[in-house]
Simulated assay, not measured.
Amino acid sequence: MSQTRTRATFPPPVMEARRWLEGVDFTQDRPLINVSQAAPVDPPPLALRQAMAEFAVSEDSAHLYGPVLGNPELRAELAQQIGTHYGADLSQVQVAITSGCNQAFAATISAVTDEGDEVILPTPWYFNHKMWLDMAGVRSIALQTGDDLLPDPEAARALITDKTRAIALVTPNNPGGVEYPAELVRAFYDLAQEAGIRLLVDETYRDFDSRSGPPHDLFQQPGWDETLVHLYSFSKSYRLTGHRVGAIATSPNLLAEIEKFLDTVAICPGQMGQFAALWGMQNLSQWVAGERDEILDRRAAIQDMLPDLAEKGWKLLGLGAYFAYFEHPFDLPSDELAKRMVAETGILLLPGTMFMPQDDPAGKRQVRIAFANLDRKGLRQLFDRLTDATF
C-alpha cells in the first residue's frame, strides 16, 4: 500500500480516545468523567438560539452562499473588536472568516508553504496543527519547552533554516494551558520579522485569559500584518462549536491567497454560524464575561485542590483557559495509562504522547485534562479519583 498524505499522520486523537469507551460500563455511583475534549457541552445561550431560529426562518440569505472571505458585517465587527481588545486600528480588509479555526490554520499554511518547507511548533503541540502539516507535506520542526512549557525564542532561532516559513504559537496554550507573557510573544514576532517568516498566533482561548488588557502588543507594530497571522475562534466564547466559525487577521495580500484555498474547500463559511458570531459580539459581552469568570473560578479550584494530588507525585506543568497539563507519577507510559484509566478510574483524558513527537520521552510522562465542563463539584470528584488512583 502506497504512502499517502493522510497515512503520513495519526488518527484524530479525540476520536481515538472515544473508542477506549467501547465495552466499558460506568455506574451511577461512578459515572464517566470525560476531560478529553476542549469543547463546551452546553448549547449557546437561549437568546442566541432564538435569534438564530428567527434568522433561519425570516432571512433567505441564511441558506445561500456568501462571500468567500466572510460576510462584510462580521468582518467589520471583528476588526473593530480586535482593535479595541489590543489597542490598535484594524480594517475589515485585514480580517477573514473561516469554517472554524482549524481551517484558518490550514488555509494559512497552504498560502505560505510549499511541499518540503518547514514550520516550527513548540511542544507539546496542538495535534491538529501537526496533522495538517503532515497532510500538507510540510515538516513540523519541534521546539522543545521546559517544565514551564514556555518556548524559547533563541532556541527557535537555532531551528530556522532556508526552508522555514513560519512559527506557530498557541496562547493561552492548547494543550498546556499556559499564557505566554507579552514580552515572549513580542520576542517571537521580532524573530519572525527578522527572519522574513510568518508568525502564526492562535488565540482560540483568548476570551478566557486571566489577564486584563491586551495580552500582547503585536497589532500595535507598524506593518504588523506582513509578519503576524492571528487566528481566532468563536466556538468556545459563544458555544458555537457545531457551527464552525473561525477567523484570520493578516495582510490583504495574504488573504487573497488564502481566499483560493477557502473557495476550493468550503466556498464560504456557513451563514448561520456567521450570524450567530455577529449577534454574539453585539449582544453577549456581559455573558461572555460571566463565562470567563466561571472558567477562572474552576482554574482557582484546581489550584486549591492541587496539594492532595501533588502529595501523590503529580506535577502541574501548565494551567489556564480550558486545560491543566500534568506530569503523572506512574511507572507506565501515558498512552497505556490513559487507556487503563477509563476502566479503572472512570476518567477519560488524553496522554501527552498525542501532543509530542514519537521520539520525545516527555510525552510518556504527561497527560492533558480539559476541565472547562466540570464545576467545582465535578473537579472535586476528578481530583479524588486521581488521588486514589494506583497503577
Rank of each mutant, 00 (worst) to 15 (best):
P122S: 06
I82F: 15
R292W: 11
G318N: 11
E77S: 10
G320Q: 10
Y65S: 15
E73C: 03
G70L: 02
R376G: 10
V95C: 00
Y232E: 12
D308Y: 04
G318W: 06
Q80R: 15
I369K: 02
L200M: 11
R211N: 09
N34Q: 14
S99W: 12
L184M: 05
D152T: 05
N71M: 13
P329R: 02
E118W: 00
D162T: 08
T4A: 07
P11R: 00
D263F: 14
R49Y: 11
R18P: 07
E22C: 07
T204R: 11
G363A: 03
D25F: 12
L121Y: 04
E291R: 13
T241H: 15
M272Y: 02
H63T: 00
F26N: 01
A324T: 00
Q50R: 15
K260W: 00
E54Y: 07
P252F: 07
N71I: 08
P43Y: 08
M15G: 12
L64Y: 13
P124A: 01
A276W: 10
Q92S: 13
F188E: 05
E257F: 10
S334C: 13
K315M: 13
T171F: 07
T164V: 03
M52E: 10
S91W: 00
E257R: 14
H216W: 04
K315H: 08
P333M: 01
W20T: 03
A62Y: 07
E259F: 05
Q193A: 10
F208H: 12
E54W: 12
A47T: 05
G346Y: 09
I369N: 09
D388V: 03
A158S: 06
D209Y: 11
I160F: 05
A96G: 02
